[in-house]
């Protein structure tokens, strides 16, 4: 119940920001969207088992689904690199208004 609510809140904020005209706001919207999708992935794995999949220190019977975690780990880093790239675009002019020229 809690995760879906959080996902809904994050997506709402993300979409609102993405539709704005400033590049920086669009970027921040994408960052929020990234968070929500990552949480959605984990939610897909289920939240009924919350143990760490570190088998040296925790029992496998309680470990959470490691596969979505692996997805999310790379997704975080890729979102980060895309964010850097978008910041570069925002920095590519004096102003980051996306509607000036048109």
């Amino acid at each position: 119940m809690t995760l879906p609510i959080a996902i809904g809140v994050l997506v709402t904020g993300a979409v609102y920001l993405i539709l704005q005209r400033d590049m920086v706001r669009i970027i921040l919207g994408f960052v929020l969207l990234g968070h929500s999708v990552n949480l959605l992935l984990l939610s897909a794995g289920g939240t009924f088992r919350r143990g760490r999949p570190l088998l040296e220190t925790a029992p496998a019977e309680e470990a959470a689904d490691p596969l979505p975690q692996a997805f999310v780990l790379t997704a975080i880093v890729i979102t980060f690199s895309i964010t850097i790239y978008m910041f570069t675009l925002a920095a590519a002019s004096e102003d980051d208004d996306t509607e000036e020229a048109s």
Partner: peptide, 14 residues
């Protein structure tokens, strides 16, 4: 969109 995403997450996961 947020409502759709939240509902989707509620209905299709876990």
């Amino acid at each position: 969109t947020g409502t759709a995403a939240g509902l989707g997450a509620y209905v299709f996961t876990g």
